[in-house]
Design a protein around this nucleic acid. Sequence first.
DNA 1: TCACTTTAAGTAAACGTTTACAATGCCTGT
DNA 2: ACAGGCATTGTAAACGTTTACTTAAAGTGA
Lengths: 325, 325
Amino acid sequence: MTKPTIKDIAAKSGVSIATVSRVLGNKTGSYSEKTRTKILKIAKELGYRKNSVAVDLVKKHSDVIALIINATPTNFSTQIIDGIQQRADELGQGVIILYAGNRDHALQHQAIITALERSVTGILLAAIEPDEEDLTLLKESRIPFCFVSLYFGTTAILAVSSDNRELAYQATQYLIDRGHTRISLAGIDGYHTGSQRQAGYQDAMAANRLPAATVLSGNYSYEAGKKLLQAVVDQGSTAVIAASDMVAAGLLTAAHQQGVRVPADLSIMSIDGTIICQITTPALTSMTQDFYQIGSQSVNKVLGQPAADFVSVSVTERDSVARLD
Amino acid sequence: MTKPTIKDIAAKSGVSIATVSRVLGNKTGSYSEKTRTKILKIAKELGYRKNSVAVDLVKKHSDVIALIINATPTNFSTQIIDGIQQRADELGQGVIILYAGNRDHALQHQAIITALERSVTGILLAAIEPDEEDLTLLKESRIPFCFVSLYFGTTAILAVSSDNRELAYQATQYLIDRGHTRISLAGIDGYHTGSQRQAGYQDAMAANRLPAATVLSGNYSYEAGKKLLQAVVDQGSTAVIAASDMVAAGLLTAAHQQGVRVPADLSIMSIDGTIICQITTPALTSMTQDFYQIGSQSVNKVLGQPAADFVSVSVTERDSVARLD
DNA sequence: TCACTTTAAGTAAACGTTTACAATGCCTGT
DNA sequence: ACAGGCATTGTAAACGTTTACTTAAAGTGA
């Protein structure tokens, strides 16, 4: 037995497929109660399940938004996804997630194409740094897209994120307020998010007439953090701002291994504020982002609803920052 | 301008849509090189992008496998996804991920239905415990499904996972070999995975003529771990097997807070072996699962290729287990 | 040159829905 | 009893592809 269609239901109940479609689609007021119950009964008997592919084709439209993610944001992705899923649900949209690997260009490109070919309502790109080609592809398609947790420095491209410059500025100021003057910034890359944070850090240092250290670049990973501790020590800093919780965790592991005490010898300020911060010893003080909000606002934005460009950040004090006197 | 179709290409190049379709679909040997280049050129000019929805409809088939995940496996999900994506790619299948929230029944059900309606090649359910209704739904559909990281105790239902009984047995034996006799098991639930691990633990204890402690149940989360430390202490155990890295991390945090030294006062053996184990202090000794393999094998299995039922586990020694003398 | 094969291309049906439009029958008020 | 309206249903086109079948043209060997 092959999968039943509305044609089967129509045949079995002696009505036309149009009527079946209307009943199943809940078009009000165009069929009698009697037909309705009969059709519903037969549909259930047959184990009918609608073919969304056919529906999408005729409607030229999907009621689905595609979310493209990569491996990097492991730690915070569930919060973003929760926010997206929840808000999408409220707006009657389904969500499919496309995985773009670990900053893998081919996969990333493939994911975008897949989304485009499926006539989705909108495309969300979480923590994805697109290359020119991808961006052109997106722009030329008729379908709206929005970057999540990434800001281009222009409102011409839809995006929802924390204000990375402000975030880094606050992180830096927080450390300065606690007496630190030699502060490192570690683990960021040279793309949008990274350079915005770098700017915030440098501005804050300058505003306090303090010399900014050379930024220690990395890829937001645990391994990067581990590798960068030595450089931080070499810079003679008493505090370091980590580009992510993972970087912070890596710095901390390396610190333990090399006998650098945290926070006595070195204070660590992390960026993200996920559960990772609670797991380490000492727990990591962090600039905490509201990933759930970022997710739900981005859904609003990609669907053309009013939405914030930036969502607020706050510092969560834990145990990795010392006050210097 | 609306999205171009093969009809537009056909019109512009003066051939029929059949020919266009053949060229674009790379059907060899049924068109001349000249037409081919002409069509390709025009397609590019027009910015043509195939409509997968229409293709799927006519082919009644998707070349896509659906992966349903929930929030719980945050920690290991990327490895599983990597394995799945990689293997699926090799076999010419795309992957779409459907998110089922935090063990949210409605969402989970919805995700299954979505997959069913989209005529995917196969459905993968990662760390999902289905209820009867979901299982019936899946069985009655014509499409193959495979559970990932969950074993039903029967080969009637496709599944790929670690051998949870064996895993727990080994974990227990490992601790016993190091002189522990009072061992707790914390954080598991009563479903398949949980009860298999419980059995392994109890068997190992019995085989060593040791009394098994009452199993401390939980939901594999950090919070559960935190909450359960006191119970572990109350059981007077010198060692505890944690149901997951997150549970282990929770136990450890609570231990720090309550002055219980790890591993001096209490040894912790974690299950999973993700990066979390490296982040904590002390680093967590773990039963390490090969999630990448679990992922790739499950793709094989759901596509009808030869595949393992179980993938091997191993212990990774770190610093959270003490030897008792 | 003729019958025959090969190559290149076209025609039209099919996939499973939705929906504009048409048709039917019944009811209403006069 | 009849025009008009409404409720209910049917007919058929459309969505953008793929593909079986057909046709036309060109090449082949004797």
